[in-house]
Amino acid sequence: MFDEDRIQQDSPAWVAFVQICFAISLGCTALGVIFLPVNLWVKGYLGMGLLFTVGSTIILSKTLRDQHEARKLIKRIRDAKTEKILTEFEKVS
């Protein structure tokens, strides 16, 4: 009862675009921190902030996706239960 047509998949071009944009933005920001005319400890602080921001953004997006997928699964289970109840009711009637 698995319906592959209901699974949303991104095109390979979109995945490549997203990965390239991520790499460019991370690289440009890192270069900006490296070439910033400040002390090394300030660069280190900004670099740590950049890494923590990127890491927590990835974790947040994964968590939100997992919550969304869980809600979709719960909805499908409820729909299946409702359909089963209606089918049994129709047999009795």
Rank of each mutant, 00 (worst) to 15 (best):
I7K: 00
I7L: 03
Q8S: 12
Q8F: 09
Q9N: 06
P12F: 03
P12H: 00
A13W: 04
A13L: 10
W14R: 11
W14I: 11
F17W: 09
Q19P: 00
I20Q: 14
C21N: 10
C21A: 11
F22P: 07
F22V: 07
S25V: 12
L26H: 02
C28N: 15
C28T: 13
T29Q: 05
T29L: 04
T29R: 04
T29D: 02
T29K: 04
A30F: 00
A30R: 01
L31N: 04
I34C: 09
I34Q: 11
I34E: 15
F35G: 00
L36N: 03
L36P: 00
L36E: 05
W41C: 08
W41D: 11
V42G: 08
V42M: 08
K43T: 03
K43A: 03
Y45H: 11
Y45G: 14
L46G: 01
M48N: 13
G49K: 04
G49D: 08
G49H: 03
G49M: 05
G49V: 05
L51D: 05
L51I: 11
F52H: 06
F52W: 07
F52R: 06
V54H: 02
V54I: 12
V54A: 07
G55D: 07
G55R: 06
I58R: 05
I59L: 13
I59C: 09
I59M: 11
L60K: 12
L60Q: 13
L60M: 15
S61I: 10
K62L: 06
K62V: 00
K62E: 01
T63G: 05
T63P: 04
D66R: 08
Q67I: 05
Q67E: 01
A70R: 01
R71W: 02
K72H: 07
K72N: 07
I74D: 05
K75R: 15
R76D: 02
I77W: 02
R78E: 14
D79E: 09
A80M: 04
T82D: 14
T82K: 11
T82R: 13
E83N: 14
K84F: 13
I85V: 10
L86R: 07
L86H: 08
T87D: 09
T87A: 12
E88M: 08
F89R: 10
F89P: 03
E90V: 15
K91L: 08
K91G: 01
K91I: 01
K91P: 02
V92A: 15
S93A: 13
S93H: 14
